[in-house]
Amino acid sequence: MKRLGPYVLIALVIVACSWWIVVAQAASDLPKVDLNVNAAGPRPVEDTTEQALQRDYARAWSSMEIALSQNRADVLDADFVGVALDELKDRVNQQQQSGLHTRYVDHGHKLQAVFYSPEGSAVQLRDTVQLEVQYLDGDKVLHSEQRTENYTVVMTAGENRWKVRVLQAAAAQPE
């Protein structure tokens, strides 16, 4: 048993390092989100809320991109709720039935908070996102393009994170 001690230690170190690499990789895989909360009201956005919104919105897009490219609705539950969740699940189901996929290459989000409810349970945001979108039928690329999209977003506070409740593409808003 004494002989095995160093090997167990080395194995533990390797496992810990692998875990750290996986976690770091996952974090760096999140899309870039620049959040501006200066225009939000009537309640000012707290620093911790700002960080949480930025992190959770990035996670939501990451989950959506996985769901639509791999047709996996199961990855959506942690980050979406209500209408947005129903809508994405419908899309994944319809893609699955027809053998279709959507692949995104996310080049970053300019996110602006425009409303934060007085009790702190809901926030409305505007997102301008740079994307490369590929629509696929099986493995065949049907169409691919670079585009700038504008979204109206509503996020609500969940048990341990902010979840996207509304994600609706919108016409460009004047600055």
Binding site: D86, E87, L88, D90, R91, Q94, Q95, S98, G99, L100, T102, Y135, D137, L142, Q168, A169, A170
Partner: peptide, 27 residues
């Protein structure tokens, strides 16, 4: 092919016709 909010449609159509789709989601 039509892709949009809550929608992914693959449908055979005859060119020259109007294709009617029931779309419930805005976006």
């Amino acid at each position: 092919f039509v892709f949009g909010p809550g929608t992914a449609i693959k449908k055979e159509v005859r060119l020259g016709d109007h294709v009617t789709l029931p779309l419930k989601r805005a976006g």
